[in-house]
Amino acid sequence: MLKCRDVEQKIGSDEIRHAGLMERLAVHIHLAMCRHCGNYARQLRAIGNAARSVWKSSEEDPTRLARLIDRITER
């Protein structure tokens, strides 16, 4: 049986992405049964989503971007 510490390690380090089927299944079963680890997984997902929305939504304004491209290509 996986302990919470093992599940936190596998999710937090992204090890789970490269894990085999049985290992992934074991983690999913644990997550379904353990609300603490479920909360942990949801928090990490929310943190990732927040990071994307903060930096993807604050794209440079096109004029600045065009000026920067000009500065680089002028060389």
Binding site: K3, E8, H36, N39, Q43, S53
Partner: peptide
């Protein structure tokens, strides 16, 4: 140290309203 010797959470992540949590995190 966030875990007890038996491998369970010492300070479990709290349940949060994910919409509120996400807003605060941003």
């Amino acid at each position: 140290s966030r875990f007890r010797p038996d491998g369970t959470w010492a300070r479990p992540p709290r349940p949060a309203d994910m919409a509120v949590y996400g807003r605060e995190v941003r």
